[in-house]
């Protein structure tokens, strides 16, 4: 599908950027380039109409705070790659699929339904018992799990390149 106002040279440029960023962080883009570029057109379309790159396979609300979990790469990507060899929209895939040993199939939705959203803080809360006093807080990237101990989370996750607002206080 093509969309009005989406420039093909932007699609090609974004494809190369995402591919490099993915591979630098140990991730893989879907090897089906046509399918992948189609998803990129969707991401650019969503950026144009909502102001952020919401998952092309999910209905965005248009309200950034409510959709933070589905801004690509989404909070569910790594779990879906582990369990189903691809993220929900199949932009990112496992090594097995990237190398052609497996094919992608439909991934069930793990994002909570509309009625259960907004209660998303508890997803990764793990009971740890008493925690020793630390000189700095520990921040966790909700997308890739990267941890760092510093006053504030980094502006960009060094592993998966998501922005600061995707970090949560971990300890």
């Amino acid at each position: 599908m093509s969309f009005t106002g989406i420039n093909e040279s932007d699609v090609d440029r974004m494809y190369l950027t995402l591919k490099k960023e993915a591979e630098d962080g140990g991730y893989r883009l879907n090897p089906d380039v046509d399918f992948t570029k189609n998803l990129i057109r969707g991401l650019l379309k969503n950026e144009q109409r909502y102001g952020y790159r919401a998952c092309p396979c999910r209905l965005a609300s248009g309200r950034a705070a409510e959709d933070l979990d589905i801004v690509c790469p989404c909070d569910y990507r790594d779990m879906d790659i582990n369990d189903f060899d691809a993220c929900y929209c199949a932009l990112y895939v496992s090594d097995a699929i990237a190398q052609g040993g497996k094919t992608v199939s439909s991934v069930p939705e793990r994002r909570p339904p509309r009625s259960d959203r907004g209660k998303r803080t508890a997803v990764h809360t793990i009971s740890t018992g008493p925690v020793p006093a630390l000189p700095l807080p520990v921040w966790r990237c909700r997308v890739c799990g990267y941890l760092c101990a510093r006053e504030q989370p980094p502006g960009i996750c060094p592993i998966c390149k998501v922005t600061k607002d995707r970090f949560e206080r971990f300890i």
Partner: peptide
């Protein structure tokens, strides 16, 4: 369907 979704297509 969604107009942007690969699986919908």
């Amino acid at each position: 369907a969604l107009s942007t979704c690969g699986w919908c297509g």
